[in-house]
Design a protein around this nucleic acid. Structure first.
Lengths: 101, 101
DNA sequence: CTTATATTTGCATATTTGCACAAATATGTC
DNA sequence: GACATATTTGTGCAAATATGCAAATATAAG
């Protein structure tokens, strides 16, 4: 595993590893349709500016996608991609080294 | 997902989401036999006390196990458990809600 | 008991992070 | 254009975090 990939993965995990951000992800997880930030605001204990910043972090890490719809911006969870990256890590962790060391 | 479980999961992800700690995990990942801290020291850019602290965090989150062997303490990765928790999250994230919202 | 090695802990410091509030920006409606 | 709503950004602050160094502790070997 090269350093750059490791850093990327660490960033993903760090983004998910904050309670309010993880709450946002769970919330989006339960939504069939994309949600706007005001709506998402209700599921965690921070104000709109805080939610905005959290969503920005999630967006930068490719965890959520956003699309402006008029006045609102609708966020949706990149389910497949995130799940895939988590499973890849799980596979790496679980795979015992074949030979040695 | 109740709040307590979410917090636990966030803690796991946060523990893994720091570059040097993730490097330690990768290092342990490639080891068949448990490693002591001095050995692990080489894989990341912090001194022994830093490694000690990182290993403590990983240990508290159940990511690694430790066992004293004489003068050394040998650390090993809890492969199955960590992989399982990551896959559980992946499953939650990937599963689209059946009915609504 | 002294010495050597491995690990942890106390302390100080620098950096990062999460947050609220206010101001700025973007967009839609009248 | 004036106003309302949604979101972002600037700022400051308090708390958390990562780190190195030195001292303390644990264990083994002599």
């Amino acid at each position: 595993m090269d350093k750059e990939k490791a850093q990327e993965l660490a960033n993903l995990l760090k983004a998910l590893g904050e309670f309010n951000r993880l709450s946002l992800v769970y919330e989006l997880c339960q939504c069939k349709a994309p949600q706007n930030a005001m709506c998402l605001c209700e599921c965690c204990s921070v104000d709109a500016s805080g939610v905005s910043r959290h969503l920005k972090v999630l967006s930068q890490e490719g965890i959520v996608s956003s699309e402006r719809k008029g006045r609102e911006i609708q966020y949706s969870l990149n389910r497949v991609e995130v799940a895939q990256r988590l499973r890849q890590l799980a596979d790496i962790i679980e795979a015992e080294p074949s030979s040695e060391m």
